[in-house]
Amino acid sequence: MSAVQSIYQRSYTVEEYFAFEEQSAIRHEYYHGEIFPLDGPDSPESPEAKSGATKGHNKLINNVVFGLRQQLGERECEVFSESVRLAVEAGQYYNYPDIVVSCDPSDDDPHTVHRPVFIVEVLSRSTEAHDRGWKAEQYRQLPSLQQYVLITQTRLLVENYTRFSHDTWTLTSYRQLTDVLPVPALGLALSLADIYKNLHIPPLRLADQ
């Protein structure tokens, strides 16, 4: 067994995980004692993750972050992207959303967001099923979360989950550049034209649906 393999086949306490992340050159997800690399050649999400994020993935994140920060202005909300950890289940499950927003002044851990109100994930071929399924279900258990958005990078499609009540969520899909994504969780809206700015994405065809 190689040194790298041994790292990922042992169990970690959450304190060991935090210490490991501080020394690591790449990000890791933590789930009930196990750690999983999210970047680099040891990532299980090959070949896409091994070769790094696509330019389109990066542009989409930057476009959304820019739109959020521009409209939030001086409001007491913080927007984080990719490199800030989220406590999905404190002490048990931690990951790194593409974009996470917290508006709670007490959410002041320097390394981890604990009370997110808004989360965005940009889908890739290797993570799409996971982001739509199991991860979305875990996110919806967060009591503070009001909205969860999935953005497809290969075609025009934004899927918006909004909390209707404690355990009820509504799903709305947007497929045209003229559509506007409402973000009631933050009291603003993002147009698909701005989300997909500088990306040449064809409209969603009937065969793609």
Rank of each mutant, 00 (worst) to 15 (best):
H166K: 14
V180K: 04
K50D: 09
E78P: 00
H57W: 00
Y17H: 09
V88I: 12
V79D: 13
Y12T: 11
A87K: 08
S102A: 04
N95Y: 05
D179P: 11
P116R: 05
S83Y: 04
P184T: 06
F164N: 13
F66D: 14
Q176R: 14
S165F: 08
Q138L: 14
L60Y: 06
S124L: 04
S24M: 09
V183I: 13
V122I: 12
P143T: 08
T154E: 12
Y148I: 07
W134V: 14
R27G: 13
P110N: 07
A185L: 06
Y148S: 11
K135T: 07
S126N: 09
V64Q: 13
D42A: 13
V101Q: 03
V101E: 01
P47E: 06
L145V: 02
L150A: 10
V4S: 14
Y31Q: 13
A189T: 06
Q209R: 14
R115H: 13
R163Q: 05
Q23D: 11
K50S: 12
E74D: 14
A90F: 00
L192T: 05
R155H: 12
S2Y: 00
E159Q: 15
L142M: 15
Q147S: 07
H111W: 03
I119N: 03
H200R: 10
D98M: 01
M1L: 09
T178S: 15
H111E: 04
L171G: 08
R85K: 14
Y196M: 02
Y196V: 07
T162D: 06
A87S: 15
Q5G: 09
D104A: 02
G67A: 14
D109A: 02
E76T: 08
T154M: 03
G73V: 05
R205E: 12
V149N: 12
F18S: 10
L186Y: 08
A136V: 00
Y96F: 15
A25W: 04
V101C: 00
S102T: 15
L68V: 02
P44R: 04
I7R: 08
H32D: 15
L156G: 09
L150P: 07
S173C: 11
T170S: 15
V113T: 02
A87V: 03
Y139E: 13
H130C: 09
K197Y: 05
Y93T: 07
A3D: 13
R69Q: 15
S43M: 10
